[in-house]
Amino acid sequence: MKIVVAYKWAANPQDAEVGPDGTVDWSRAKGAVSEYDPVAFELARVLADTCAGEVVGLTVGAAAIDTPLARKAALSRGLDSLVMVADDALRGADGTRIAAVLAGAVRAIGDVDVVVAGESSVDVGDRQVAMTLAAQLGWAGLNAVRAVTADGGSLVVEREVAGGVETVVAGGPVVLAATADAALPRVPGMKEILGAAKKPTQVLDLAALDVPAPADTIAPVSTARPDTGNRQGVMLDAADLPAAAAQLTAALRQSGVL
């Protein structure tokens, strides 16, 4: 079985700088494996180990996503090999475009049975790209996945629904987006990181992938900082905590919220 883990190399928005006019500067923010993606690596590895499968990591983005540290960070998480598309033409690409490029790469890898992804990316957080990827491939897509096992030629997926858990059997290839707590990812140790250096990485050429050119359908109008509301911002004097507690309590009782 060939399992692809589609992950993102992205920066945490906390490290980005937002100007007073709402423009976002990501230049000082450092990329890393996106927060919830390690869960996908773990699920993929567990699945592969139960059926003698192979795990291929896949990520796409701007040229800067390909560094020795970035390769090790992925390959040390239970991958057998890594595939990347690292091209500055993808800088700022929207989710549908990213999904299209991922689909092109999955087709280029060939014979893929399942793609596993994290719940959402740390820097966008729309929970959408994995499902768009499924559609781009013409495959089924399932969200909120907690577990996946192989049963003959099918995949048996456990996914959360309102009020419970369903078991869904997929008769063909499928893209699965895992919940953020589907598995506790193991932390790569020295052994895994050393081993990572011995595993192959293939960088695919964006132009050679079978992906339509992006259509410019969105024009930016304006940006703004989020309205954080008019809060009072009363800082209580921490030098005398009992008095501060009393003052706070009185104020909260007064306004009726306590």
């Binding site: 928005p13 937002v18 940006t223 703004a224 989020p226």
Partner: peptide, 8 residues
């Protein structure tokens, strides 16, 4: 960006 800015 996870809520750090608004875009129109």
């Amino acid at each position: 960006g996870g809520g750090i800015a608004l875009r129109r």
